[in-house]
Amino acid sequence: MNRYLRWYASLHKFYRILFWASISVGAFGVVAGLATESVPMAGLGVFWLVGGPAVIFLASLFDSE
């Protein structure tokens, strides 16, 4: 857990905003999918919850700063 907190603390502000935006969109998608019983919508929300932070992690690895 300490490793992930250090990773998040070392992120540039732009990546932090993208991180929270992807978490928010994913959470909204999961809740909306479960509320409407729409499996594709819930799947899209899970994709955002998992894929968004993963893409941000990869982008932060290649950041030249």
Rank of each mutant, 00 (worst) to 15 (best):
S24L: 06
M1N: 05
G45R: 04
R6H: 03
S38G: 07
A35T: 15
A42L: 15
E37D: 15
I17E: 08
F47Y: 08
M1R: 04
W20V: 01
S24E: 00
S64Q: 11
R6C: 02
E37T: 13
N2F: 02
A21L: 15
E37N: 14
F19T: 04
S60E: 09
P40M: 12
L44Y: 09
A32P: 10
G29H: 09
E65Q: 12
A9W: 02
S10H: 02
A27T: 11
T36R: 15
G33I: 12
F19S: 02
A32N: 14
W7N: 04
P53C: 00
P40W: 11
L49P: 11
E65S: 13
I23H: 01
Y8R: 00
L49Q: 06
L44N: 13
V31Q: 10
A42P: 15
F28N: 10
L5Y: 01
V39S: 10
W7Q: 05
L5P: 02
S24W: 01
M41E: 09
I17G: 03
A27L: 12
R6D: 04
A42N: 14
S38D: 11
L44D: 10
W20M: 00
V55G: 07
G52F: 03
N2D: 08
L11P: 00
A54T: 08
F14P: 06
F19E: 05
F57E: 09
R16P: 02
R3L: 02
G33T: 11
Y4I: 07
I23K: 02
S10G: 08
G33L: 10
F28Q: 10
M41K: 06
